[in-house]
Amino acid sequence: MKKIILVFFATVLLISCVGNDKMILRDSIGKINKVMVVAKISDWTGDVGQEIRNTFGELQVGLPQPEPILSVSQVAPNGFSSMMKSSRNILMVLEGEQEGISVKKNVYAQPQTIVYLQAKNDEAIINIFNKNKEKIKRIFLDSDIAFTQSIFAKNKLDDSKYKTLQNLGISLTIPNKFNTVDDTGDFLWLRNHLTSGIAKSGSNNILVYSLPLEDGLQVADSIVVNRNKIGKKYIPGYKEGMYMITEEAYTPFTFDAVVDGKKAYETRGKWEVKGDFMAGPFVNYTVFDEEKNRLIVVEGFTYAPSVSKRAFLFELEAIAKSLKIK
């Protein structure tokens, strides 16, 4: 009788595991913006590894201190243990006759993104990687954006209580650690006071407002001018005559982007307070809403003296990219 019961439960368990992959997938681990590379030691210490490190190690523009876009670590295939397989972002470098890249989700853990890079020799691996390196970077970054947004969604603010968001007809996934600084109906400013380590005197900030869409060809050229106008009107310093502006000694970088399926510009640079020594990085998303002949602007800026800022700005990027225009 006992044997029959044991067989019954074993069969139920087996059927459950096969029928629902989520039951057998552990939670993934790993820091945001970090990729584990599974490659032979000879590849990692040779030209293949050099190309990967150079690509992922490119410096993020707009930050006051040099910080890479992605951090990397390496493990040999024979050291790719059960714990290693739980990593959230993995790049597998393989040798084989079938050449190219492929992407799989949630293979050993969830959420998880694995990019497979395969070619017949080192030269071919480097060639394929270089042709696809921007795509590969974007795959990992977008995966971390989605992961960060899922974390924020678990404890998010009720955005229906903000006059500006309601008047603009938009929504954002904003974690509930943010507090209101200003909400005029036309302009929203939210702030999260940082509480950890030596960054505890700093803050993360979100700005939301709209602008008329007058000449689409001039939008990219007017982003700095418009954000300086907003800073002067809404973001004062501690003394009269002080307000936030775009740092005059540093030219921001503007890239094409897509937010909520709409054309947008992503601008990264540094802000400062006119007449003061406060400064830091910002990321600005100017989104075309052609249906209503306007631009929706969502910007994040951080103030965190003496510490690395990549992670703070990435959180703000994830919030901005959660924008939905109703």
Rank of each mutant, 00 (worst) to 15 (best):
I235Q: 08
L316A: 00
L70A: 05
R310D: 00
N78K: 07
W271D: 08
S308C: 04
N132S: 13
L188F: 08
E123T: 14
K161Y: 11
A39P: 02
E123G: 12
L217N: 14
G241Y: 13
M36V: 13
K292H: 14
I198K: 15
A249R: 11
I29L: 09
I114T: 05
I235M: 14
G280F: 01
V181P: 02
I24N: 04
K321T: 09
P175H: 05
A124P: 00
G79Y: 07
P77Q: 11
I101Y: 09
T55K: 02
K262G: 04
R191S: 15
G261W: 03
M244Y: 01
T195D: 13
S306C: 00
G202W: 14
Y108A: 11
L295W: 06
D43R: 02
I235G: 03
S28I: 03
E248A: 11
M92Q: 15
Y243M: 10
K34E: 14
D260P: 00
I174C: 03
G79P: 00
K324D: 11
K324F: 10
I223W: 00
V12L: 15
M84C: 06
R294A: 11
K40F: 13
N54G: 06
S322R: 05
A39Q: 03
D221M: 12
S222P: 01
V259K: 04
V48A: 02
D260A: 12
F312T: 07
Q74W: 05
S82N: 05
V7F: 12
R268E: 12
G79H: 09
Q112M: 09
L190M: 13
V287I: 15
L157H: 06
L207V: 10
N20F: 09
Y285V: 01
V93C: 01
L194N: 12
Q98Y: 07
L172Y: 08
F288Q: 07
Y238V: 10
T148A: 08
I319C: 03
L172P: 05
V38C: 02
L217F: 12
M36Y: 07
F255W: 03
K263Q: 07
R227F: 05
S171N: 13
K156A: 14
A199D: 11
K22F: 02
M84P: 00
